[in-house]
């Protein structure tokens, strides 16, 4: 009889890097924001000129800077996950601190932008464009706040698994932003 020496085949779910529940969360968030963006462009069909005019009240350059800030923060978080794998806890804490601080910079810029738009007398009821703008970017900003708290927690309790899960949440925030940013700020 021949002995079966082949390694057991891994299931599809086991191939996913990190925690399965984090992927469930990532997919859920993508669906929520994806539905919001599709609804945004769907409503735009009824008033493309109004949406184009409304967009002129935003700051695409500032949002572009915020994109660089967030993807750089994601870069530091990815390096932190790498450091966690080789057990460099001091390095990973510094990297997570840098990622969190860039998250704070993102929020400060976003706060300035919200204050400026609100200062123009624009509210959620001014135009459907701004209903979606406040809702989608505000909800995303809340995720950034949650992400900063999570990065602080995993920096404190820095096991490899915690860092992997915490940074995955942060990358999800990143991923949502790279889809939000062009649709809301750039599509003329």
């Amino acid at each position: 009889m021949q002995e079966n020496t082949a390694a057991p085949r891994r299931g599809a779910l086991e191939e996913l890097p990190g925690d399965l529940m984090m992927w469930v969360l990532i997919i859920s968030e993508l669906l929520v924001f994806g539905a919001g963006l599709a609804a945004f462009l769907g409503v735009r069909i009824t008033d493309p000129d109004g949406f184009a005019e409304a967009r002129t009240h935003l700051h695409p350059a500032l949002a572009g800077v915020n994109t660089i800030v967030l993807i750089t923060s994601g870069f530091l978080a990815a390096l932190a996950a790498e450091a966690a794998m080789i057990g460099k806890s001091a390095r990973l804490r510094w990297l997570l601190t840098g990622a969190s601080l860039l998250g704070v910079v993102f929020l400060l810029i976003k706060g300035y932008e919200f204050a400026d738009v609100a200062g123009q007398g624009i509210s959620t009821e001014t135009h459907p464009f701004f209903t979606f703008y406040y809702l989608l970017t505000g909800f995303h900003a809340l995720h950034v706040v949650a992400g900063i708290i999570i990065l602080a927690l995993v920096g404190w309790k820095c096991s490899e698994r915690n860092v992997e899960v915490g940074t995955a949440f942060w990358h999800m925030v990143d991923l949502v932003w790279v889809l939000l940013f062009p649709v809301i700020y750039l599509l003329a």
Partner: peptide, 9 residues
């Protein structure tokens, strides 16, 4: 890129 490298897919 984010899915592949940052999220390690």
């Amino acid at each position: 890129v984010i899915l592949s490298r940052y999220l390690q897919l």
